[in-house]
Amino acid sequence: MTGRANGRPDGSRTGRAPLLVLDRAQVTSLLDMAEVIRVVEQAHEALSTGAARQPDRSSVELPGGSSLLVPMVAAVDPLAGAGVKLLTDTPSNAGRGLPVQQSVITLIDPETGACEAVLHGAPITLFRTAAASAVATRHLGRPGAATLGLVGAGAQARAHLAALARVSDFNQVLVWSRTRATVEAFAEHARAQGYAVKVADGPEQVVREADVLCTLTPSRTPLVRGEWFRPGLHVNAVGAPPRPDHREIDTAGILRSRVVVDSFPVASSESGEVLIPVQEGVITSEHYRTELGDVITGRAPGRRAEDDITLYNSVGVGIQDVAAARLVVDAARRQGLGTEVDLF
C-alpha cells in the first residue's frame, strides 16, 4: 500500500484520501476475536442509547432467480464508523459450488462522507456473528455453563468455539452435523484446542446435554425442538438465512424461551424463527421485542432466574459489520496493508 498524509495535526482531514481495498485474506489476517467481541458489544449498547443508527432495511428478491439482495446500512458514532454491507443470499449457488451468501462492505469516512474503504465481507460476517453470540451468552447465559453444544460443524462452529471460549469456561464440546467428514474435522480442531469433544448421534442429544447451544445450519425447517430444552439452557439461534420462511428452532422452542433479538425491526421482517410462530397465533411480537442492546444497558432484563431458558435470535445487523470493519481498516492503515485506488 502506498500511503500518503491526508490530515492536519488536529486530526481533521484535508484533500481526498484514496479508497482502500482489502481482499479476503487481508481482512482475515487483521481480525482479532477479542477486539471484535468488544466492538460488537459497544455497537449494540450504542444502538440502545441512540448513539448508533441503522434504518429499517428492505430485502429485494432479484428478478429471474433465487437471489435475495440485503443492503445493511449503519452508523456507529462512538466507533466513528458508518457504512453499508451488501449481502446476497443465493440458494441455487449450492449446486454451483459457490457460496450461498456473499457480501462486500463499504466504510464511509464520517467526517467527509467519502467512501474510505471496500472490504470482502465474508470474514467479517464470520467473526461478528460469533462475537454477537458471545456477547449474548455473556449477558444471558447461566453462570457455570460447562458444556457447549453445536448443531452444525462448519466455519461458524469454529468461530463460535473461539468466541464463546472468551466468555465461558467450557470443559466439553458436543457437536453434530449431517456431514460426517465435517464433524470429524471440527472434532479434531476442537481437541487440538484442548477440549473434550463428543460427536452426538443427532441434534436431540446435543440439545438435551448442552448448557449453551448454538444452532449453525442454513435450515429451512426446524432441526431443534423446544421439547428437548432443559431448564437453564441458553440458545444462540444463528444459522437460518434472513428469510421469513426459514428457521432452525420449532415453535415450541420459541414459546418456551425468553427471546432476545439483535434488532426488533429486522427480526419482524426477516426472521422465520419468530415470524412463523406469530403467523401460527402462538405468540405476539411482544414475545421477541427485547433487543440485545437493551439487555446490555440494563433497560430490559435478561435472564431472571437460573432455570430460565433464554434464546438469542441472531439475524445479523449492519452495526456489527460496520464496527468490525472499522477495526480492520484502522489495523490495515497501521500495518500498510491493502490496495489504494484513487477514484478521482
Rank of each mutant, 00 (worst) to 15 (best):
L213F: 02
G152D: 04
S285V: 03
R158T: 02
L343A: 10
F229S: 01
R258N: 13
T284N: 09
F186H: 08
S257T: 02
V104Q: 11
F170D: 03
G338H: 09
V295E: 09
S257Y: 05
G83K: 08
V40M: 11
F229D: 02
A153G: 06
D32V: 10
L19R: 13
T112H: 11
T217F: 14
T137Q: 14
K85N: 04
A74I: 01
T215S: 14
P301R: 12
T28F: 13
I105C: 10
I108C: 12
R24E: 11
P99H: 12
R191D: 01
A46S: 07
L311G: 03
L126V: 05
E35V: 04
R256C: 09
R128P: 03
D56L: 14
L119G: 03
A34L: 08
A51Y: 01
N171R: 15
R334V: 08
D308T: 05
K198A: 15
D169N: 15
T14C: 04
T179D: 13
L223S: 09
T14Q: 10
G3C: 04
Q205I: 00
S12M: 04
V27H: 06
V260H: 13
V282P: 00
P143T: 05
L47N: 08
R299E: 04
P78C: 14
G281M: 08
R258M: 12
A75G: 06
A237T: 03
L68Q: 06
S177L: 09
Q101Y: 05
G336C: 10
G113H: 09
A136H: 07
A122C: 07
L68E: 01
T90E: 05
A130V: 03
V260N: 07
H160C: 09
R289S: 14
V260P: 04
V135T: 07
P18G: 14
D250P: 05
H234F: 09
G281H: 11
G97H: 09
V167Q: 12
D56N: 13
